[in-house]
């Protein structure tokens, strides 16, 4: 940033805050004025739940009724990571440690927490079929476990080769896409699963999505973090 850019004045702050408050009040009032409706699509969702393949309405909407949107949401995640990879400095994925080995307390905590996080991610994935849960929640917990492991110095970001990282990033999208396209060869529409295959397909897709989402989140974190310098590592290793 050049030095000649002036810091905003107090008056500017006041005007900006005033404007924000005004917009907030307007929006809040408008939200309160939203007329109640009793129709809408919610009843159709309930009516069709039994042919969606799963029992949780949220999962049914995400993976079946509005599967097209979810497929594209995954594309957005993959796009975000492509954007990050296209801008990162050289060889970040294969670089050194992000942190020195953690002190005993954090180190122990990591050893206890990470297996539990993996277990919870697995549970959320499995529960998503009939209760709140699913790939996005499970994937973010896996992602958090990955961040914890790298931040506590247990694992170097280069532990997995960049090629494997990229494959895991892409696998969820690819599996979903293949499952979406296959029905088109049987005279159905995109994403139109046969009734008896809907459940296994949804579980298959969700499982692979969990890995991809977790890996995307970890990679995003690693790509924007700076590795510690060589001096630091050497000093720490003694």
């Amino acid at each position: 940033m050049p030095n000649n850019i002036e810091r905003p004045r107090r008056a500017q702050h006041i005007v900006a805050v005033g404007l924000l408050v005004a917009v907030f009040v307007l929006l809040a009032r408008a939200v309160l004025y939203i007329p109640m409706h009793d129709t809408g699509v919610a009843s159709s969702i309930q009516d069709n739940l039994q042919i969606s393949g799963v029992l949780n309405p949220v999962t049914a909407v995400l993976l079946n009724f509005r599967g097209y949107d979810t497929l594209l949401e995954i594309a957005v995640l993959v796009l975000a990571i492509i954007g990050v990879l296209s801008l990162q400095r050289e060889g970040m994925l294969a670089s050194g440690r992000l942190a020195p080995f953690a002190d005993p307390a954090l180190s122990l905590l990591t050893r206890i927490l990470v297996p539990m996080m993996i277990l919870i991610a697995g549970y959320l994935l499995w529960a998503g079929e009939k209760a709140p849960g699913g790939a996005f929640q499970a994937g973010s917990i896996l992602g958090a476990a990955g961040v914890l492991v790298t931040l506590s110095g247990h694992v170097r970001p280069g532990w997995l080769s960049p090629a494997i990282v990229k494959i895991i990033i892409a696998v969820g999208f690819v599996v979903f896409l293949v499952a979406a396209i296959i029905p088109m060869f049987f005279d159905k529409n995109l994403l139109e699963y046969p009734l008896h295959l809907a459940k296994p397909l949804i579980i298959l897709i969700e499982t692979w999505l969990t890995f991809s989402i977790g890996m995307i989140l970890v990679t995003m974190f690693i790509s924007s973090a700076a590795p510690i310098t060589d001096d630091y590592v050497r000093g720490d290793a003694t």
Binding site: S44, N48, F65, R66, Y68, L190, E192
Partner: peptide, 13 residues
């Protein structure tokens, strides 16, 4: 128009 998943409008896309 085209409906992915074969789900009818309005609850489908």
């Amino acid at each position: 128009s085209y409906v992915p998943g074969g789900w009818e409008v309005p609850y489908g896309i």
